[in-house]
Simulated assay, not measured.
Amino acid sequence: MVTDTPVTWYYKHLGKKAIVLIAFEKANGKVEYDLDHMRQVAKSSILKGSVFALAAIPAGVIIATATYGLGLLVIPVGFFYAYRSIFKIPGMLRRTTLVNDLANHGVVVQ
């Protein structure tokens, strides 16, 4: 591990607390990226969204039973996170989007 060398990081914000590392530039100027790994991250996001969608109604009903109906507000929140995970995040991590984002920073992807 080398310390005290400048490294440029290319990352993407997926949410308030979620960041995905897209690529990084080494000290010699070579940019390292793995867009196939980003495809796997997008697929796992779709799976996570499906789980959110399937669990939203039962979780809302269980929480509503314990909180005298107030837990029904969990259902729309669960569907919102499902929508984000199924449609928004894979759209942000699509190969063409990432290639265009890296091209805006001057990185040529082959």
Score class of each variant (00 low, 15 high):
Leu102Gly: 09
Gly78Cys: 06
Val2Lys: 15
Gly78Asp: 04
Ser44His: 06
Leu21Lys: 14
Glu32Val: 11
Ser50Tyr: 09
His37Thr: 04
Ser44Gln: 04
His105Ile: 04
Ile63Glu: 01
Leu102Gln: 11
Val61Glu: 00
Phe24Trp: 15
Thr97Ile: 03
Ile86Leu: 12
Leu102Lys: 01
Ala42Arg: 01
Thr97Leu: 09
Ser44Tyr: 10
Leu73Glu: 14
Val107His: 07
Leu73Phe: 15
Ala56Trp: 00
Val41Ala: 12
Met1Asp: 15
Leu21Gln: 14
Ala23Val: 13
Ile46Leu: 13
Asn104His: 11
Met92Ala: 15
Thr8His: 00
Ala56His: 02
Thr3Phe: 15
Tyr81Val: 07
Leu98Asn: 10
Leu21Ser: 15
Ala59Glu: 00
Thr67Asp: 13
Ala55Tyr: 03
Ala18Val: 08
Gln110Phe: 14
His13Asp: 11
Val61Gln: 00
Lys12Gly: 13
Gly49Arg: 02
Lys48Cys: 06
Leu54Cys: 13
Val61Asp: 00
Thr65Arg: 02
His37Lys: 03
Met92Arg: 13
Thr3Asn: 14
Ser44Glu: 04
Val51Gly: 02
Val107Glu: 11
Ser85His: 12
Asn104Thr: 12
Ile62His: 12
Val109Ile: 11
Leu35Glu: 08
Ala56Gly: 00
Gly29Thr: 13
Val2Asn: 13
Val61His: 00
Ala53Asn: 03
Tyr68Ile: 07
Tyr11His: 10
Arg94Trp: 10
Phe24Asn: 09
Glu32Arg: 03
Lys26Val: 13
Lys12Pro: 08
Lys88Ala: 06
Arg94Glu: 15
Ile89Gln: 12
Lys48Ile: 07
Ile63Phe: 08
Glu32Trp: 05
Arg39Tyr: 07
Ser50Cys: 13
Ile75Asn: 03
Thr96Trp: 01
Asp36Thr: 06
Ile75Gly: 04
Phe52Asn: 00
His37Tyr: 11
Asn28Phe: 09
Val107Leu: 07
Gly91Tyr: 07
Ala103Ile: 05
Arg95Ser: 08
Val77Pro: 00
Arg39Ile: 08
Gly106Asp: 10
Ser50Met: 05
Asn28Glu: 08
Asn100Lys: 08
Gly15Trp: 02
Asn100Gln: 15
Val2Leu: 14
Ser44Pro: 00
Gly29Asp: 12
Pro6Tyr: 14
Ala66Tyr: 09
Val108Cys: 10
Ile63Asn: 03
Ser50Ile: 12
Ala59Pro: 04
Pro6Gly: 05
Val74Trp: 11
Phe52Trp: 06
Ile86Pro: 04
Tyr33Gln: 09
Tyr83Pro: 01
Trp9Cys: 05
Gly29Cys: 11
Phe80Cys: 09
Ile57Tyr: 06
Ser85Glu: 05
Ile22Pro: 11
Leu47Phe: 13
Tyr68Asp: 05
Val51Met: 01
Val7Asn: 02
Ala27Lys: 08
Val20Gln: 12
Ala55Cys: 07
Val20Leu: 14
Thr97Gln: 02
Lys88Asp: 03
Ala42Cys: 06
Leu72Ala: 14
Gly91Ala: 10
Lys16Gly: 14
Ala103Asn: 06
Arg84Phe: 00
His13Asn: 13
Thr5Cys: 07
Asn28Gly: 09
Gly91Trp: 05
Thr5Gln: 08
Pro76Gln: 10
Gly78Glu: 04
Phe80Tyr: 15
Gly29His: 10
